[in-house]
Design a protein around this nucleic acid. Structure first.
Lengths: 236, 236
DNA sequence: ATGTGATTTGTACTATCGTACAAAAGATCA
DNA sequence: TGATCTTTTGTACGATAGTACAAATCACAT
């Protein structure tokens, strides 16, 4: 009989299941899915390999549970911030608030906080790069709603920009966001130590500032693309 | 091109070595390094697993050779385009030309062309996400020069923007570029079929337009960051 | 045609992978 | 305490990984 935890959760270690999830999250996010073995995860969590099988059945199941754990709270948080942002009167300020609502939850460093977090965002970036099938399915059915909500909100504050352009630019935003979390050291290196790529507050401000300007760029209509004949044409 | 094919080069198939390189490039770029086995590569190239060992010694050696093959020509191409871009008089046009010089070689679809190409760029994106050690070493010592050259050029056409900001924004550009090549289908999906994320010409124009605007955004100085107190502060 | 060196094949070895499963240990409550 | 359920451990199995290596095969100068 499956009983709900009556008074308190019991385990020899504080919570082995959580430890495994945290370890897997960290290892997957930094090394990718295939490079990390179940034994690696177990060792990092101070657990036995068999425990992973017991709690999550398979390695895919473990990844699935990581997504399940984060997706709900993260989208909730984003919805709240988006709703607040949409109440901003000034259109320019509203656009910035919307972008901030999208970016900030992705950078939060709270490890206890279930929703969002830089580690989970980085995990998603790596999984998307690896074309992970488990992640791909979840992403499409969980994040597209949120993405559409943000795109619509941005579109409302920039009515003269075609929706297509906004989609492209929000795609670029996500790419920039991902990459900032994947290789923050590159920023420090290229700036010769003048900037700290690992500082989330820094990254957020830079990203918001650059992205708002990108969204406000003139639309890419026929006239514009006809005006600028490319120096180097691409193979069609 | 016609060297002496005397006693040095010969193979039963047109060129098995090339076939293996091409197959590995394709598989690594779409599935990551660890998800692809040497046997997968051999099969895709119509070769025997032993052939891979013969030509490249190890799996790492194969990846290394892929980078070696592409890095030189790609950087050369970029240098040429950058030099041409720097000769543009008008500062606004010059900035766009510089960005284009950076972006265009990364999207070229020529498979015979050794320099650059979308496939190799995507490969780099995936390797960077996976934190691949072989790739990391090569990248740092091969691409940083080029990156600095572009950053300097952009800085010259935007003298009032601090170099730090330019580094961040060019970092975002690379992230957006990578992500566009990794998951082009997402653009098609989110735009509900109105845009084709797989069309390189389209991606280039959108990326150039958005990036130029991002570079031209006002600098992120003390005044700006003080003015906008964040809605949600991040853990320091 | 034949010898020679370059390439390809076939196979085998060892390590490690994900996972299954029985036994041990811990927790819970009559 | 003893019965029962949950969790952890230890171990093993089949599959597959990267790589080594000898034999077979090919291209070509002689």
């Amino acid at each position: 009989m499956v009983r709900k935890p009556t008074s308190k959760e019991s385990a020899r270690k504080p919570n082995m299941r959580e430890a495994i999830l945290a370890a897997a999250e960290e290892l997957f996010a930094t090394n990718g899915f295939n490079a990390v073995s179940v034994r690696d995860i177990a060792q990092a969590a101070g657990a036995n390999p068999g425990s992973v099988t017991y709690h999550f059945k398979t390695k895919d199941g473990l990844l699935l549970e990581i997504y399940r754990r984060h997706c709900g709270p993260m989208n909730l948080r984003r919805s709240e911030l988006l709703a607040a942002a949409k109440r901003v009167r000034d259109l320019q300020d509203r656009l910035e608030a919307i972008v901030r609502a999208y970016v900030v939850p992705a950078f939060t460093s709270g490890s206890d906080l279930a929703g969002g977090g830089a580690r989970f965002t980085r995990l998603r970036a790596v999984m998307s790069a690896e074309g992970n099938e488990v992640a791909r399915k979840i992403i499409a059915q969980t994040f597209d709603d949120t993405s559409h909500a943000f795109i619509d909100a941005i579109h409302e504050s920039l009515p003269h920009i075609p929706r297509t352009d906004i989609v492209w630019r929000s795609h670029f935003l996500l790419g920039a966001l991902y990459y900032s979390l994947v290789t923050p050291d590159r920023v420090s290196r290229l700036s010769r130590g003048e900037a700290d790529g690992s500082d989330p507050a820094n990254a957020i401000e830079q990203l918001v500032q650059a992205t708002v300007a990108a969204f406000q760029a003139p639309p890419l209509d026929q006239a514009a693309s006809a005006r600028r004949r490319p120096v180097v044409s691409n193979k069609t």
